[in-house]
Design a protein around this nucleic acid. Structure first.
Lengths: 148, 148
DNA sequence: GCTTCCCTTGACGTCGGCGTCAAGCCGTAC
DNA sequence: GTACGGCTTGACGCCGACGTCAAGGGAAGC
């Protein structure tokens, strides 16, 4: 098959396939017209790359899987180098998830603190003789005149 | 104070400060020599930007906070537009964390499946008269000839 | 013949948040 | 003097994974 069909069957684009080739993954044979030709094994390679990309793996991280398949192993993760990438990715994911949860907690804290402050301000504004409101309580929609 | 001191006190660089100015955040006065000059209020603005950036907010998302401070409110999150950004960010964080956890689970599943397959292969290799091993069990270090 | 589609290579654009270099001005310390 | 540090503007570089456009070739359908 040619590049368009290959890409379509893997759910990607011809441009991406050429890019993978330029990176040394997924080399291609050529037919008499200079067109790239691929077989089912190439499709499996490409699908392996796409799956890992969808997981958030960088292209370089897919290389061990691709080389493992090209070496004749039944799956891309049949080789120890691929398993090492899995483990490294798990560590990265754990670290990232932990950071994001910490950020989430801090943002949530800021939000509740700010909401509390606004509530108190609103309460003060209701007190007879209280201070004039320092913050408008309506959300800004399109002020007009803040661009650039 | 001038740009270098401002940046240093906020833990960032003069280049970043000029970039924020080019984006319309943090405008600067100029002295007789054309040098940018800042005061303590600018420092507070800049620290607000840096804090939010450290949380992973995009620059545009810091704009409501900066405008809120410049409008004279006590905190960057004293205005409803800022609270809206907080809430949107919480939603984004929740979605992202959820996706990452799903990916983590799938990768972990792939890893344990692949490890299991390797264990079984190793066991077969030990059976007298069993199949020859299809996968090398040693990790690849520096094969030599795989660069580029 | 003509249109349409797929293919080729090459090269520049995208996005965000700056880093880094170039060339020059200014004031101060030695 | 002159060396140094800090400031100015302008412009290009970077990262990753492609998108998109240009200019052309070749085959298939009408």
């Amino acid at each position: 098959m040619r590049i368009g069909e290959l890409a379509g069957r893997a759910g990607t684009t011809a441009r991406a396939v050429r890019y993978y080739e330029s990176r040394g993954l997924l080399p291609a044979r050529r037919d008499a017209h200079g067109h790239r030709t691929y077989d089912e094994r190439d499709l499996k390679l490409l699908r392996e790359i796409r799956t890992l990309q969808d997981f958030g793996f960088e292209l370089e991280e897919t290389r061990p899987f691709v080389e493992c398949l090209r070496a004749g192993h039944p799956e891309g993760d049949s080789c120890p180098a691929s398993l090492a990438v899995y483990r490294r990715k798990l560590d990265e994911l754990d670290a990232l998830i932990g950071e994001l949860r910490a950020v989430r907690a801090r943002v949530a804290g800021q939000l509740s603190r700010a909401e509390q402050a606004r509530t108190e301000l609103a309460a003060e504004a209701l007190v007879p003789g209280g201070p004039e409101p320092r913050c408008e309580l309506v959300p800004e929609q399109a002020p007009g005149g803040q661009e650039r």
